[in-house]
């Protein structure tokens, strides 16, 4: 069986379309009539409704990381370093990336499917006929909401992951919460937390803009809705990794590692 990869032309067209769509976002974001009510509704839908999933995955992440790393750390007599190692790994890299990937799956696909179905059922046209700028009402509000909510979700996930780690540490050795917290806080510096926090805004923006782009430009009827949801997840996940790579390069160049 011959494997078929997308042609470079198709990839360039897709990137061009996304760049044009992003340009349209920046032209529209400050246009008159702020859709404040819709923005808060989206924050609720995107943020609050994802907390449960993000909390569970964060908790398991912290728990599993601690359990998996303990034997190796014990071999080197470095068990007392587990809280520091887990905190740095989670705060700097694993927490933001895993949470962003989960959000790409849940939020990106949700936005892609919702806007895609609105497009094929002419709801976006109906909005325009009703005197509403559908791009501003549907896209700008969702992109802002994901940009602001993904960092919040990452903070929740990181915090819960560290709680998970504390629980795992206590399965074998008894460690007081005060000591565990002290070790976590002492191991983290400004240069660990700030770059990791800043990159989550870019992750959120990428997830929102890709989901909206795929949904808003979908075609081919109901088949297009499924395609929009699917390709939104794939493209947003890929972008999360690309942005993470760029963030690592930037922090390295700035000497923040």
């Amino acid at each position: 069986m011959k494997l078929q990869f997308p042609s470079y032309r198709l990839i360039l067209e897709e990137l061009g379309g996304l760049a044009r769509f992003t340009g349209q976002f920046f032209r529209n974001w400050a246009a008159p009539r702020m859709e404040i009510q819709e923005f808060f509704r989206q924050c609720y839908m995107i943020g609050y409704r994802s907390v449960g999933l993000v909390a569970i995955t964060g908790f398991i992440l912290g728990l599993v990381m601690t359990i998996q790393s303990r034997p190796t750390m014990a071999r080197f007599g470095a068990e007392s370093w587990i809280p520091s190692m887990v905190a740095i790994s989670i705060i700097r890299e694993i927490g933001p990336v895993i949470t962003a990937l989960i959000c790409a799956g849940k939020i990106g696909s949700g936005i892609g499917a919702e806007l895609g179905s609105m497009k094929v059922t002419e709801q976006i046209d109906a909005m325009e006929v009703s005197g509403t700028n559908p791009f501003k009402y549907l896209v700008v509000t969702r992109v802002w909401a994901t940009t602001l909510m993904v960092p919040v979700l990452v903070c929740c996930s990181d915090t819960i992951a560290i709680w998970g780690s504390y629980l795992a540490v206590n399965m074998k050795n008894e460690t007081s919460l005060a000591l565990f917290s002290q070790q976590v806080v002492d191991s983290l510096s400004f240069s660990d937390v700030l770059p990791a926090f800043i990159k989550t805004f870019f992750f959120g923006f990428a997830i929102g803009i890709v989901g909206c782009y795929k949904g808003y430009t979908s075609s081919k009827g109901t088949e297009g809705v499924g395609l929009a949801a699917n390709s939104a997840v794939v493209m947003a996940s890929l972008l999360v990794f690309v942005l993470d790579l760029l963030a690592a390069q930037v922090t390295d160049t700035l000497g923040l590692n």
Partner: peptide
């Protein structure tokens, strides 16, 4: 609209 286009 043909599809009614009610907001779901």
């Amino acid at each position: 609209f043909q599809s009614n286009a009610l907001y779901d």
